[in-house]
């Protein structure tokens, strides 16, 4: 099985994300508590955890949006404290809640997001065309995003997030609220993209989606309480489903539900 996991992950040992003793405190509250891990190139890395476990804080630190209190994090070779701007250029981001401008057309969204990531006009035009072609959306290029079905928006948003070929892509609950067929198709797209060499960190509340990931980290109260492939974690915690695994890990740690705003 490990053989196969490596295959999907590209078998690469190059680190795209390196985190050492990373800590973030807000006042007396420790949101992320001295965690360390790596993410390999070409890997689909699942980040799970209860609400308020520290996922969002971690992602914000890795995107250069939030300064760590202690510790080191390197993303795509850049230190998040010393080169947050370079980090921002080397990541792509997509979430279900915000990703595209609904009142702009598909083409306008491509131009806008390509533009803010500093893509050259020629490259952008080429990449945009290739993207539209790959999605088979030539017909809808000039339609407003608002008029497209949710599944399409999602595929467009994802394609735009990787348009500038970032070293790392964050997908923040990318599939919430979509129908089952679209959801599976989207995961197909994610895995295919990872095969092309993109590294992907994804958060989700769907436990079955964790099984698509090469490795998952389950956060609880600011710690990483478990980190391995889904199969290995299940046997490590002697449970038979992802749901049981998640329950065991998060509830044994006791939730931090009492802390607001996270």
């Amino acid at each position: 099985m490990n053989e196969q996991d490596k295959n999907i992950g590209g078998g690469n040992t190059e680190h795209v994300v390196e985190v050492r003793d990373l800590t973030k405190r807000f006042g007396t509250f420790t949101a992320v508590n001295s965690i360390s891990f790596e993410v390999y190139k070409g890997e689909v890395f699942g980040l799970l955890g209860a609400n308020g476990a520290g996922k969002t804080t971690l992602i914000r630190m890795l995107s250069g949006l939030l300064r760590p209190t202690e510790g080191v994090a390197r993303v795509a070779g850049y230190d998040v404290v010393h080169h947050p701007e370079r980090v921002k250029f080397s990541i792509g981001y997509m979430s279900q809640k915000f990703s595209l401008y609904e009142d702009l057309t598909v083409a306008e969204n491509i131009r806008f997001f390509g533009g803010i990531y500093g893509m050259k006009k020629k490259d952008l035009a080429k990449a945009g065309e290739a993207m539209i072609h790959k999605l088979g959306m030539e017909e809808v290029e000039d339609r407003l995003i608002a008029t497209l079905p949710l599944g399409w928006k999602q595929r467009i948003a994802f394609s735009i997030a990787i348009l500038h070929r970032p070293g790392l892509v964050f997908l923040d609950e990318p599939t919430s609220g979509v129908d089952p067929v679209t959801r599976r198709q989207f995961w197909e797209m994610i895995l295919e993209t990872a095969r092309e060499g993109f590294t992907i960190i994804v958060t989700t509340h769907y436990m079955d989606e964790a099984e698509y990931c090469d490795r998952i980290a389950i956060m609880s109260r600011g710690d990483i309480a478990g980190l391995d492939s889904p199969e290995n974690l299940q046997s490590q915690f002697s449970v038979s489903s992802m749901e049981d695994l998640f329950w065991k890990i998060t509830r044994e740690h006791k939730t931090t539900d009492a802390i607001p705003g996270l």
Partner: peptide, 10 residues
Amino acid sequence: TTGVDAASRK
């Protein structure tokens, strides 16, 4: 339960 983690949903 939208946006709520799996354990809290349970």
